[in-house]
Design a protein around this nucleic acid. Structure first.
Lengths: 193, 193
DNA sequence: GAGTCAAGCTTACCCGGGGTAGGTTACTTG
DNA sequence: CAAGTAACCTACCCCGGGTAAGCTTGACTC
């Protein structure tokens, strides 16, 4: 099997095993066996166990960035853009649960500095997408304010997606609704209602 | 040295080493040596490496829950309660950086299921504190709505604290301000400004 | 004061799994 | 067909989590 194809297979298998058993409990021998290949092949292509994890995360975050950026194309108002981005995000986390749990669960230094950096880079990517969006609609707002808002959106999305994926009585659309109410309209509106 | 005291010392040393080098890179032999004790003592008291991590996390989350619940006592309006809670939270993450980075970095299944559960329990604790607060001020609002709002607040706090701790030009108060603007007033207000 | 029990502690070891050295096969290319 | 290289293997090293078995010391009983 040619290298490129084998690498894709390895990433796919690793994603599944990492997500299932957790990074620590997954052994490289097992992954190799499931690929029908011996362990040194993985080391040849990915360098280390952490390297393999990084490859998995990178693939997931590339897909996520693609899905969210594409979703906001052509939105007329900031409200519409935000809502569309949220729905796309929640749909992604729902349909790509394995990939998403990898990005969440393999936090930082537990797997190693490279994996930590990859995950943080993924978040930062989302932050920058959000900032670009806000900046386009809100030219008057300061950069600090924009970044704070973007971080808030990313954090809220992350947490809410975990919550809604665990409940089958809430759809991606409803999750986006809740988030729009809180972030866009503001929680203060609940008091007056 | 009596057991209780030794346990406290072990947790303190472990917290530091885990936070410094990361969970994987920290070896039990090193931790034992820094305690002036041999490895089996730690296993006697905490059962496993993961058990030791769980003890560290539990201590940190207990402190955090204490700080945030105490901060909102006596608040007259929901706005004041929310703001006070946020400030207390950001101050905690700033002054207890090691403990906080442990809670964030040792995500989920990477260390093992018990550690994952402990961290999720910590988040859920915060969610419930928030829900109780909201419920007190907003008796009309549905439980689903309350929980969604609480999840959003927790997620936004987590992310924003990481951001603000990394920037020395932002104070806990200002971080709380940004969050109040986004969550309480709503981002829509930026458009009209 | 000898006997006993437990708490706190040790040395010396096992073994799974990440990572590597060095070689084999088989296909391309000049 | 010789040379090179891509894809792959077996066999091994060794660190570090985890354990077995026993030592020391002090308190408490008879």
């Amino acid at each position: 099997m040619p290298r490129a194809e084998r690498e894709r297979q390895m990433v796919a298998v690793a994603e599944e095993i990492f997500a299932d058993r957790g990074y620590l409990a997954a052994s490289m021998d097992d992954i190799a066996e499931r690929c029908g290949v011996s362990k040194p092949m993985i080391y040849e292509y990915f360098g280390s166990k952490e390297g393999l994890l990084v490859a998995c995360i990178r693939e997931a975050r590339t897909e996520l960035a693609k899905a969210t950026t594409e979703s906001v194309i052509g939105a007329a108002t900031p409200e519409e853009a935000l809502r569309r981005g949220l729905v796309a995000f929640f749909e992604f986390t729902d349909t790509h649960r394995r990939a998403w749990s990898l990005m969440l669960r393999s936090e930082a230094a537990v797997a190693g500095p490279a994996a930590a950096a990859e995950i943080e880079a993924g978040r930062q990517e989302q932050v920058e997408i959000d900032m670009a969006l806000f900046r386009a609609f809100l030219p008057e707002t300061s950069e600090v304010e924009l970044e704070a808002a973007a971080q808030i959106v990313v954090g809220a999305c992350e947490r809410l997606s975990l919550w809604y994926v665990g409940r089958d009585d809430v759809t991606a659309d409803q999750a986006a609704d809740h988030l729009m109410l809180a972030l866009w309209t503001g929680l203060s509106s609940l008091v007056r209602a």
